[in-house]
Design a protein around this nucleic acid. Structure first.
Length: 603
DNA sequence: ATGGATGTCCATGCCGCCAGCATTGGCGG
C-alpha cells in the first residue's frame, strides 16, 4: 500500500474514533472508518487520483473526496486537527484496551476526567471509577489485567508462530478419545499475516458430553501455559508462552522471565452445531454480518448454533428447541444460504458473497516447483544436492538454486567469478527425477539497476530480482527503482517486492498498481515470499495482481530444510488474494514452466 | 457522511453474551 494511503487511512481512523468519543453522529464516525478501510484496499496512490476517480470508490462521497484531496495537497486534514484539539490524545490509547469501547471511554472521560492510562489507573486505585455507569468490580478487574498486558507492548503475532503454537494445543486435544474434531479458527484459519489471539474449536464425540471437563483439563495443562484465565467445561482461556518450543526461532530467556504470551481460547461444542460454530468463530466479523443479513432476507436467522427459520420470537431459536435448517457442516450452511462454499481465507467481506461460482483457489498440493532457494554457496544450509533431494521428496519437479548476488556481502553474495563456478556446479549436479535450475537472487540496487550485468544474467536459467538494501526510500523513488528492474529483459521473478519484515520494518511503499501493470506487461512474475516474517507480496497486493492477470510465484526463499514447510503460509496469502492455480507459475507442469523461463531475454 | 431510491429524503449489516443495578447498553465475533 502506498505510504500516503496508509497515513491517510490511519488519520481517518482516528477521526472516526474521535467522533465516537465526542458523542457525535455515530454514522459520521462509521463513514470515516469505512472510508479508511476502502483507502487501505486501494492499489493506487491516493495522491495520483482525481476527484472523479475517488468518487467511484465505494464508501467515498463528496465530503470524503475533498478531505482526501486536501490530504494529498497539504499532508493534513483541517477537520482532523480540530477534532484532535477537542480530544485528549491519551483517550485513543484507552480504546486499544480490550473491553473498552467508545461509550465507556467517553463516560470515564466526561465523568472522572480520565484522559490516559495513568489517570485511569489512579481512578481504579481510589475507586472513583466505580461511579461510571455499567462499571462494576468485575469490569474493573478485566481492565486492570488488560492494562498490564498493554504495558508489555503486545503486538499481533506472526502467522507462523501462531500456527506452531496452535498445533501444539490441537495435537494434544486430537489424542483424546472423546474428541471428534479439532480446528483452530479465527484469523489464523483465515490465514491473516498476523493474529491477535488463538481460538481452538473442539467437537465432542456424540454420547460423550459428560466428558467435556477432561478436554478443558488437557487444554489447560498443555506445556507452555503460563496462566489460566477461564476454566469452564465448555470454554477455557489461557495465556501461553511464545518462548516455549517454537523450533529454531526459540529465543533464549533468562531464568524466571516469563516473556511474551498470547491468549488461547478453547470452545467445546456438540458435533451437531459444528459448522455454524466454526463459521462464527472463523469470521471475519464483516463476513458474518453479511451472511446474517443474507439469511434475514431469505427469511432465516443465523447464529453460532445454526441457521434457523425466522419466527420473530425474542428468545434465541436453539433455546426453544427449534430444529435448524443447517448447522452441522459449513458446506450445508453455505448451501442453505444459496452460496458456494467460501474458503476461510476469502471471508473478509471483500465481494466473496457476490460471487456465484465456486472459486478454485491455489492449494499447497498444487505447488510443484520451488523457484527461490539458497545453498551453502551463499547463506543457505544445504548443498545443491541436499536441496534438490528435499524438493524432490516433496514431489516437486523443479528446484531453482538462486544464491545471493555480490552486493549482499553479509549473506555471502557471489562475485561474478564465483557465480560462474557455481553455475557449473549446479549444472553438473544431478538428482534423478527433478530439474535443478541455475539461477540467482540478484539484488535490485537502490537506483533500480541489477547487481550483475546483462551478459551474466543471460547465462542463467532463472533470475529472481529482489530489493535488499535501501528500503527506506521514498515511494516515488522506490516505484522508479522497481519499474526499472521489471523492465530488465532477463528478470523472471521479483522477489519479496516491498522488503517488509512484519513487526520489524515497513519496507518499500511503491505504487503497487504501477508495479503490477508493468509486471503484467513485461511478463514478469511477482513473488509471494512464504516466510511468515515476510509474506510479501501481502494479501491485498495479490488480489490486485490477480485482478490484473499478473503472474505470481509462491516461493519459500529456502535457506534450510524445514523452510519448505512455510509454503502453507505463502499459499494462504495467495488464497487471500483469490489466486488461482493458472496464474501461479509454481503449479505449472515442468514443460510449461521451463518453456516460459526460456521465453524470456531471448534465451 | 454515504448511497439508494427518488427527484430530497431516509436508513444506515447481525446476533449472542455479559454485567449490571434491571430489562438494557456495550462489546466482540
Amino acid at each position: 500500500m502506498p505510504a500516503a494511503n496508509q497515513a491517510l487511512a490511519s488519520l481517518l481512523h482516528e477521526m472516526s474514533q474521535m467522533l465516537d468519543l465526542l458523542g457525535e453522529d455515530s454514522f459520521r464516525a462509521s463513514s470515516h472508518a469505512r472510508a479508511a478501510r476502502a483507502i487501505e484496499d486501494l492499489p493506487h496512490d491516493i495522491a495520483s487520483m482525481d476527484r472523479k476517480q475517488l468518487l467511484e470508490v465505494q464508501g467515498i462521497g463528496p465530503k470524503m473526496a475533498d478531505k482526501i484531496l486536501e490530504f494529498a495537497a497539504t499532508g493534513e486534514v483541517k477537520e482532523h486537527k480540530e477534532l484532535a484539539s477537542r480530544v485528549p490524545p491519551g483517550l485513543l490509547m484507552l480504546l486499544q484496551i480490550p473491553g473498552l469501547g467508545p461509550k465507556i471511554v467517553r463516560a470515564m472521560w466526561t465523568q472522572c476526567s480520565i484522559c490516559d492510562i495513568p489517570s485511569l489507573k489512579k481512578c481504579i486505585d481510589d475507586g472513583t471509577i466505580l461511579g461510571v455507569p455499567r462499571m462494576g468490580q468485575k469490569q474493573v478487574n478485566k481492565i486492570k489485567a488488560a492494562i498490564a498486558l498493554a504495558e508489555q507492548g503486545q503486538q499481533r503475532l506472526w502467522l507462523g508462530r501462531a500456527y506452531a503454537l496452535a498445533e501444539r494445543f490441537a495435537s494434544r486435544l486430537r489424542e483424546l478419545p472423546m474428541v471428534e474434531r479439532v480446528e483452530p479458527a479465527g484469523s489464523l484459519r483465515r490465514g491473516r499475516d498476523t493474529v491477535g489471539d488463538i481460538d481452538i474449536l473442539v467437537a465432542i464425540r456424540p454420547g460423550h458430553d459428560h466428558e467435556a471437563a477432561q478436554i478443558g483439563e488437557a487444554f489447560r495443562t498443555t506445556p507452555g501455559v503460563t496462566q489460566v484465565l477461564v476454566a469452564g467445561d465448555n470454554k477455557s482461556s489461557v495465556r501461553a508462552s511464545l518462548n516455549f518450543d517454537v523450533g529454531r526461532w526459540k529465543r533464549t530467556v533468562d531464568e524466571g522471565e516469563q516473556g511474551p504470551t498470547i491468549q488461547v481460547d478453547l470452545r467445546v461444542l456438540p458435533l451437531a452445531s459444528w459448522g455454524a460454530a466454526l463459521m462464527y468463530f472463523t469470521g471475519s466479523k464483516e463476513h458474518n454480518v453479511r451472511l446474517r443479513e443474507r439469511a434475514l432476507k431469505m427469511g432465516m436467522t443465523l447464529n453460532e448454533w445454526g441457521l434457523f427459520p425466522e419466527d420473530d420470537e425474542k428468545t434465541p431459536p436453539q433455546a426453544r428447541g427449534v430444529k435448524p435448517v443447517a448447522a452441522a457442516t459449513e458446506e450445508e450452511v453455505y448451501a442453505a444460504l444459496k452460496l458456494p462454499y467460501i474458503p476461510p481465507e476469502c471471508r473478509e467481506d471483500r465481494g466473496e458473497c457476490d460471487c456465484n461460482t465456486p472459486i478454485r483457489l491455489v492449494e499447497v498440493a498444487d505447488i510443484k516447483a520451488e523457484l527461490h532457494a539458497h545453498t551453502t554457496a551463499s547463506d543457505g544450509q544445504l548443498s545443491i544436492e541436499e536441496l534438490a533431494e528435499a524438493a524432490k521428496a516433496r514431489g516437486y519437479h523443479t528446484i531453482a538454486v538462486t544464491d545471493h548476488s555480490r552486493s549482499s556481502a553479509v549473506a555471502g553474495g557471489l562475485t561474478v567469478e564465483r557465480l560462474l563456478t557455481h553455475i557449473n556446479a549446479v549444472r553438473s549436479a544431478k538428482v534423478k527425477g527433478i530439474t535443478i535450475l541455475a539461477g540467482s537472487e540478484v539484488d535490485i540496487l537502490a537506483d533500480g539497476t541489477l547487481d550483475y550485468p546483462d551478459d551474466i544474467l543471460k547465462q542463467l536459467d532463472i533470475v529472481v530480482a529482489s530489493p535488499h538494501a535501501g528500503l527506506t526510500q521514498d515511494p516515488p523513488t522506490a516505484t522508479a527503482r522497481m519499474l526499472k528492474a521489471i523492465g530488465n529483459p532477463y528478470v523472471h521473478i521479483v522477489g519479496h517486492p516491498t522488503g517488509r519484515l512484519i513487526n520489524r520494518r515497513a519496507g518499500l511503499s511503491p505504487d503497487l498498481a504501477a508495479i503490477i501493470k508493468a509486471a503484467q506487461e513485461h511478463d514478469v512474475a511477482l513473488e509471494i515470499n512464504s516466510h511468515w516474517m515476510r509474506l510479501d507480496l501481502r494479501d491485498s497486493h495479490v488480489r490486485e495482481a490477480v485482478k490484473a492477470g499478473c503472474k505470481i510465484a509462491i516461493d519459500c526463499d529456502v535457506h534450510a530444510r524445514d523452510e519448505f514447510d512455510n509454503i502453507r503460509f505463502g499459499v494462504a496469502t495467495g488464497r487471500r488474494g483469490w489466486l488461482t492455480p493458472e496464474l501461479c507459475i509454481n503449479t505449472w507442469d515442468a514443460e510449461r514452466l521451463h518453456g516460459w523461463l526460456k521465453s524470456k531475454g531471448g534465451r
